[in-house]
């Protein structure tokens, strides 16, 4: 059964690498969905079914669809893939990888303490809900205010785009 975790982990890593190195935005979004779904499987195996459901519904279902809407609005054609080829020279990967590989090794070193196992127990959505609206109530309100601010900001930015598009037509 533990092998399921490693299969999902390899799938997540491989699809994430495809997202980062991809040339076509819509293909990269499909790979992003694969990555998010495999992370959702890992959440489920870690005993967090509510987080797994939210990962599928909100990340793969809402955020990626938002990305897809914008990709469709921008009308990226075949030229965009050729432009990505021009922008992404192989030599550009060297310096960022030299920066992030030591970071990864440092993180692995820092996170490898005494061996610990995850508790093979499920945290039910009910527990999460009562905690969320108990001790974390203020944080939930603040998250709501953040989402409202984002809504107003996104409307403001997008409205000018749409109204000026209409004038051109």
């Amino acid at each position: 059964m533990e092998s399921l975790f490693y299969i999902a982990a390899v799938t997540a890593l491989a699809s994430t690498v495809m997202v980062v190195t991809g040339k076509n935005a819509s293909h990269a979004l499909i790979y992003l969905i694969v990555s998010l779904l495999s992370v959702a499987v890992i959440f489920f195996l870690l005993g967090a079914p509510f987080a797994a459901a939210l990962e599928v519904v909100v990340y793969a279902g809402a955020i990626v669809v938002l990305f897809l809407f914008v990709v469709m609005m921008l009308n990226l054609g075949k030229g965009s893939v050729a432009r990505e080829h021009a922008w992404l020279r192989p030599s550009m990967w060297i310096l960022p990888c030299l920066l992030t590989v030591p970071l990864f090794l440092g993180l692995v070193y820092a996170l490898s303490g005494e061996p610990a196992q995850t508790a093979a127990a499920m945290v039910s959505p009910k527990t999460v809900g009562t905690q969320l609206f108990g001790p974390y109530l203020l944080a939930v309100e603040l998250a709501g205010i953040l989402l409202l601010a984002a809504l107003v900001g996104a409307y403001h930015l997008g409205r000018r785009y749409l109204s000026e598009r209409r004038e051109e037509v």
Binding site: Y6, V20, I42, L45, V108
Partner: peptide, 20 residues
């Protein structure tokens, strides 16, 4: 369905995804 997985392996996966 919850499994007992070594915590370090999950953290290594999270670090690898973050660095990617």
């Amino acid at each position: 369905f919850a499994l007992s997985i070594p915590l370090e392996h999950v953290f290594v996966l999270a670090a690898a995804l973050f660095c990617t």
